[in-house]
Write a protein that binds this DNA or RNA. Structure first.
Lengths: 205, 205, 205, 205
DNA sequence: AATGAATGAGTCTTCATTCAT
DNA sequence: CATGAATGAAGACTCATTCAT
């Protein structure tokens, strides 16, 4: 699953790949994967064509690299470590939602790339994305179940609900252009409240 | 705004374009716009390269054609005419949501294409998509405001909420693979109920 | 040597060809032969593609048609009939030069086309152009010889001189852009005088 | 103004471009710009399609390259450096005319290309050609004025006369086929004498 | 005589990837 | 490890010409 390389010096690999990721991210976010050429990445990263291919086997590899980087930045931005993930207390839900949406604003271009490319059949990214995605949904599902057992949430189908809420949280990224002239806090507040009311035990349905 | 053609016979244009749309839709849904070649569309549609370009000026034109077709199919599938659109009685909301999600299941590949390409900078489609999208959100916003005035809905920011609900309705399409082994009715029911509870006046927030 | 056609009705042929020539001339003058498409000629002439090819066998045929038309218009503009041609009284030389250059101004675009295409290897036009051209040179050569015998002209090589003078007369067309802001009469006068002095018996050489 | 390239090695660029110019010149001279394909240039130059486009951005670029090369060869063939150009002592006129026409014979195909393409609307070449052309005319105009002041030439309009003489000098190239069976020296002599007599102060006009 | 849709080889151009130095 | 020139298949698009109606 790891992106391979011929280069032995680990530190160099990590340094060069940072260059690649930084350059490629910007380009992919702006123009999309297909519309970005290796030459552009080469130029923007300061690596020659040959070097580029010393640290990466293909253009697809770069997408994987960028993809992983986005995930990682998202996670670290949330202040969660890899293990704990979203597996938190139901009581924290509002807090989590709030922080997640903040992230969505910050990383909206990146999230858009993720959604876009998740549908293209690029094998590698595809598989990895789905794996991580599945984990996220599972973690969130557990949280909902916990809340349900504790009587703080009312949930019909936990898996569907988890999936749904994760989509709602992505609203700021997915619908960026549409919401661009609405105050950020207003958006976050509206969505958060909507989710909480949707989970609330008070309404009869 | 109309896609132009060299061909004078209107009936033929509409017949050939149907061929083109059918062929291209399948390919675009499957492989994406960039990964589909004109030759593939030519082969799949049964038109020679030259003929293809008699009915369409560019590959982008085909995307516009497919895009309009998806919108149209979605609309007609909802059983709403263009005028009435989504501007219906608040009491019908559940009904509308249900039918919309049914459509999302049926047209999931198409909806995925719409989302994917809405982010690429292909001007023509881009502009048209955003225009229609804006109209949809506005219509739904009006519906929410009406419901709010009549005391049947509780809404914080109607525009954001409209945008949010329209995204939620698209869940079956956007998250197709994730929900593939969950019963369709279960998904629709869960989402519908979640939305209704989110709009409910009973919960205090 | 005649451009052929399948159509029997002679009057119709001549009418339709006039349409073709008018349309094609404009386009050829403006964009050049290679850059003009048959579709454009079809549109501009008001004939359908099929009809076009009923009155003409190929695009090259149209060039021949346009070419002949230019020659004809040039001749008739000079007020000379085909027989007499340029074989006139030496005393008239100044008059002829003047009128010819007037024509060059009027038909400059056409003359430019002639020069341009005379160098391309388009067989038909090529041959016809050279034939007519040869005749012109021969006629003018005779005129010079006559003048020489009568002692009014001094000429080293009559053939070369004829060729040279015919080129000089074309100055307004060949160098159109360069001379565009110089008074027409001034140009004509300068060239005419230069030629006459070049032929003059007074200068010792 | 310079034709750009992706290649960094300057020497290589200049070597490969020589290949391209050599190959393209031959083809352009023979068949014209429009009738020459990139594949032909590729084959004739010994460069693959990809390489070709590494040294040149477009087919038009090649025309510019060929054009500049022709100008350069013409200049260096005259034995004049760029500065001195045609701005020489009036007494040398006969000498200059003679050498120029020698060049015209040698480079007739190239000069024909220049005239041909000067009329096509290919912006790049167009502009450059006109610029250089203007300079030539200006230089020659100055020479005539000097001669006029010194009393060695009689000139009506110096600009027109300069333009005219430069056209006359091109006779061997423009009228190549027509003059092909006349002795080269005879042609040059006839034209030179004609020009000198045309400028002569002895004839009254 | 007229129509105009159909053909398909051909055009210019791009780009991911490799490999000799 | 680094360089960057070379490759060539593939891409979108054009257009003179034909022929069934």
């Amino acid at each position: 699953m790891e992106v391979q390389t011929n280069i032995k010096n680990k530190d160099l690999v990590s340094k060069r790949r940072k260059q690649i990721i930084t350059a490629a991210s910007k380009l992919f976010f702006e123009k999309g994967f297909d519309q970005t050429t290796m030459r552009e990445i080469s130029r923007a990263s300061g690596l020659t064509m040959g070097s580029l291919y010393d640290y990466v086997r293909s253009k697809d590899d770069i997408l994987v690299l960028v993809y992983k980087d986005v995930i990682e930045r998202f996670r670290s931005g949330l202040g969660l470590n890899e293990k704990a993930d979203l597996d938190v207390n139901p009581g924290n839900l509002e807090n989590i939602l709030h922080r997640s949406m903040k992230q969505m604003y910050k990383l909206s271009k990146a999230v858009q790339l993720l959604y876009r490319e998740s549908w293209s059949r690029r094998k590698n990214v595809h598989l990895q994305m789905r794996e991580i995605d599945r984990t996220n949904v599972e973690n969130f599902t557990r949280l909902l179940l916990k809340g349900q057992q504790e009587g703080s949430f009312q949930v019909i189908n936990p898996v569907v609900t988890a999936d749904l809420i994760l989509l709602m949280v992505a609203l700021p990224a997915i619908r960026e252009w549409s919401l661009s002239n609405i105050d950020q806090e207003e958006v976050i507040d509206t969505v958060t409240k909507f989710i909480l009311r949707g989970l609330s035990t008070e309404g009869r349905v």
